[in-house]
Simulated assay, not measured.
Amino acid sequence: MRGLEKKDWVLVENMLVKTIPKYELVNRVITFGLSSKTRRKLVDLACIRPGMTVLDAGCGPGTLSEMIAERMHEGRLFLLDPLDEMLWQAFRNLMKFDIEVEFVKGLMEDIPLPSDMFDLVVASYSIRDCMDRDRAIAEMKRVLKRGGRLLLLDITRPENGFEKIVSIHMKYFVPILSSIVYRKRENPWKALYKTYVNMWTPSEMVRAVRRHLAVEFFITFALGAFTLVSARK
């Protein structure tokens, strides 16, 4: 699976802008708290050290970056996203931290930053929105220093017989639950199913990363509905 078609990518990105006011609240509700739990696990495994240079690829409103900034104390944190609205929200959320933060507009498939720059690249719930996921991973590898680390977290399609259960949840229950919290006629979370059905299984996600980097380990959550991969350059 290469990624989203251009027309679907435009639809999803337009919908993402509308999620900003209640982005994390709705995501916690529709995942029963697992979106926050898995991000915290990623940050725990990142082993943040003073002086690190970190890239949050597909940062959205900066939810993961806030968790990282709390542990950095000193260093440089870069946030990358194709949407101005997401970067502005991330800016508002990261203003409270006394570290060097930079905001970069761009696609994960074409990161407008130098090669061999980062100790750590993280991407949470963003690679499924790419038009070319393989190229996105290649780009994240390019900007990593030698020995640098990638932590990739996203929704995946279970391959253990539970895929149908997760698919039903995404298609039918996510729109209902998100509508209760979002309370607006046009519900942007309806677009989530479009990205889900096009997403990798856990083993496909690991193989995709392994084509570019040395996979250290991977962890699945909720019967394989979420997968976290750790890899090094």
Rank of each mutant, 00 (worst) to 15 (best):
G106H: 07
L83V: 10
P112Q: 12
L87F: 09
R92E: 08
K105V: 01
F118I: 01
E109N: 10
L113G: 06
E100T: 02
G106S: 09
P114F: 14
V104R: 05
D119Q: 01
D110A: 14
M117Q: 15
E85M: 02
M108R: 07
F97I: 01
M86N: 13
L113S: 11
W88I: 06
E85D: 14
M117P: 07
V121S: 04
L94I: 05
M117N: 08
V121H: 02
F91E: 03
D119L: 04
E100W: 11
E109C: 12
L83D: 14
L120S: 12
S115W: 10
S115I: 09
V121G: 00
L94W: 00
E85G: 05
M117W: 04
M108G: 13
Q89R: 08
P114Y: 06
A90S: 15
E102Q: 13
D98R: 05
R92K: 01
F118A: 00
W88H: 07
E100C: 00
K96T: 04
F103D: 07
N93C: 05
F103M: 03
L87W: 02
F91R: 12
F103V: 00
L83I: 07
V122M: 09
V122S: 15
D116C: 06
L94K: 04
M86W: 12
L120D: 12
L107P: 12
V122H: 08
K96W: 03
W88K: 07
M117Y: 05
P112D: 11
F118N: 01
P114R: 14
F91Q: 08
E100P: 08
L107Q: 14
V104E: 02
P114H: 12
I99T: 00
F103T: 00
R92M: 05
M108P: 04
E109T: 13
L120Y: 11
Q89E: 15
M108N: 15
P112Y: 13
Q89V: 05
Q89M: 13
D84N: 15
F103G: 00
L83N: 13
K105G: 04
L87A: 08
Q89T: 12
D119G: 14
K96G: 01
F97C: 11
K96S: 01
L87R: 10
V101A: 10
E100V: 02
L94Y: 00
Q89S: 14
W88F: 05
D98S: 03
L107V: 10
M108Q: 10
D119N: 12
D98C: 04
M86L: 06
L113I: 08
V104I: 14
A90I: 03
N93T: 03
E109H: 08
E102F: 03
I111E: 15
R92V: 06
